[in-house]
Design a protein around this nucleic acid. Structure first.
Length: 286
DNA sequence: CACTCAACCTGCCGGC
DNA sequence: TGCCGGCAGGTTGAGT
């Protein structure tokens, strides 16, 4: 479940059902799922055995679980990863990659990932809040109190790129992916190709506000689920799809002005815009 | 340093 | 029916 609201839904589920429990045994069913664990699958299994899960934290699209051993279990869902709580007797699906059994004999935590872009790893807890070193380059996200509005506006306007590319750069602001970038740009009435250096400070601030609004609304709806790939820890879909204004709505009318929404190829993927509310930028802005 | 692009995977859908 | 290209909520590392 890729973007921030979906990952936060998972974080809350893990916090509720996994925090406080002790891992009895880990099992790696596909080594690629732990490729970021540099010392290999056997070591991954070894260091998790007997570790208690103290908490569940998130920055952007990354999750990490501080452990009683002083290490953290880091996870990223990639494009198709799921973290599911399932009873021991539940059948193993075809994309089950990692299984964690707990000493209480309760529901297992299963990492299921069709495309294997996601993964798990155990790392030393180095930074504040146990932030592992491999997440040091990940900027604060729109829902984090650490994200400073003025600093974000300055950093965004200092970039020499276009605004959507900047939003997707996790070292500038994290948690924003293709859906919520398009949704926030629509709300802020900005075209994806708008050069960042032409953004006024108020426009940058409005864009951040739009990100916060759309992500807060999506989170309240349990996230966006176009299909069964994006589910919470109990396998349930969110219903924010109905709250989307542009993403996936090519040809349908803009709910603000009525013009048909358009899908443009951009950065080897898709961007959805209202061509009337979000006109392509002219060469100069001032 | 800043930026672009291909690569990593599987599955689904539409066109021929 | 089958094959093929295109596309999908992401990240990273090599190359310019």
């Amino acid at each position: 479940m890729p973007e921030l609201p979906e990952v936060e839904v998972v974080r809350r589920g893990l916090k509720r059902y996994v925090a406080g429990r002790t891992i009895k045994a880990a099992e790696v069913l596909h080594p690629r799922a732990v490729r970021r664990h540099t010392t290999g699958p056997e070591d991954f299994v070894r260091v998790l055995a007997g570790a208690a899960v103290n908490d569940v934290r998130r920055r952007g699209k990354y999750l990490w679980l501080p452990l009683s051993t002083g290490s953290v279990l880091v996870g990223h869902l990639g494009m198709s990863g799921q973290l599911l709580l399932q009873p021991a007797g539940a059948t193993d699906g075809p994309h089950l990659r990692v299984r964690l059994q707990f000493s209480d004999g309760g529901p297992q935590l299963r990492f299921v990932d069709q495309r294997t872009f996601g993964g798990l790893a155990v790392s030393p807890a180095t930074g504040p809040e146990g932030l592992p070193a491999e997440l040091a380059h990940i900027a604060p996200d729109p829902l984090s109190p650490e994200l400073d509005e003025a600093a974000f506006a300055t950093a965004l306007r200092r970039r020499r790129t276009n605004v959507k590319r900047a939003l997707l750069d996790q070292s500038l602001i994290s948690g924003v992916g293709n859906i919520y970038a398009d949704e926030a740009l629509w709300r802020a009435r900005l075209h994806y190709a708008r050069p960042t250096e032409t953004l006024t400070r108020p426009a940058a601030v409005r864009l951040l506000a739009a990100l916060r609004e759309v992500m807060t609304a999506a989170l309240a709806a349990g996230g966006t689920s176009f299909d069964s790939l994006y589910v919470n820890v109990n396998g349930e879909s969110g219903y924010f799809e109905r709250g989307l204004e542009v993403y996936g709505r090519a040809g349908r009318p803009c709910r603000r002005c009525g013009a048909p929404i358009r899908r443009d190829p951009f950065m080897n993927r898709s961007s959805y815009i209202c061509p009337r509310c979000q006109p392509r930028p002219r060469r100069a802005h001032w």
